[in-house]
Amino acid sequence: MRKGNALLSIEGLTVAFDGAPQPSVDDVSLTIEEGRILGVVGESGCGKTSLARAVIGELPARGVIRRGSIHFAGRDLLSVSRKELKALQGVELGMITQEALSSLNPVRKIGSQFVQTLCEKMLVSRQEAERSAREFLEKMSCPEDILSRYPFQLSGGQRQRVLVAMAFALYPRLLLADEPTTALDSAVQMRVLKEMMALKTNCGASIMLISHNLGVIAQVCDEVAVMYRGRIVEYGEAKAVMTSPSHPYTRGLIGSIAYMDCDRNRKLYTIPECRDTIQRPGCIFYSRCEWCAEKCAHEPPPLRINDRGVLVACSR
């Protein structure tokens, strides 16, 4: 990886939950550069969300960071005080989550929630905050009167747009977008994504886009990290990873996308089911891998760089 002007760099991050047999994020290292979009892909429960929550400093009460470091814009996020962190949150580090209905306070109007956040974080007057809110909501093509509506009166797409607008209105340098469009149907999903990317360019933010939708990732990301069971199994340029995946898991993920124009008689690829839940000494993907060798069972694969400059955790 280029270590140019990294905005966010995560080194060997390990996050564990009380009572869970294995860490939900295991020795993860990532970098996001200024203005770039990093996609994080993986199935549900692979630790994507825990990763994002660890970065923004709001892990659930049972989650603990065991090892590693998170550096953001030259600051060590794991050693800043609570107060400093609060000052960073929102303004420097933004976050959007998946469930748009439950992500807005159900009993307060959009306008009041929006303006309150802007007033407190940007230290602006109510009028200014309202003007700015209007401007950002308009950029996300929300209807004029949305400020005076309640979340339950909006469609799923509108709610998600409000969340995106609210996040960008604080001009964050890095936006952690955790499945921002997953709950939407695909037409709306693409439109929201497009508007989001336009806004991103406008504000000059970097994005960590977490998704299990490879289509979304392929369309917008500069780099991709593929996560499996808390670990990164493949990490590199989006184009290189998507066109010629090296790790069997990535290959499986890409192979299992259904295309309109593909051969109907060809069987859609499915990754074999996960059979063991205990941590083995060897490769974490061993039990589901179709290409595994004998040594994969007891020897963890080293992270190596392949010929296209992509990091891969596979021995073969």
């Binding site: 962190l85 960073l88 949150q89 929102g90 992500s103 956040t117």
Partner: peptide, 10 residues
């Protein structure tokens, strides 16, 4: 939404 408010640093 409380989680999200926290991530906004309120």
């Amino acid at each position: 939404y409380i989680f999200l408010l926290r991530t906004r640093g309120l």
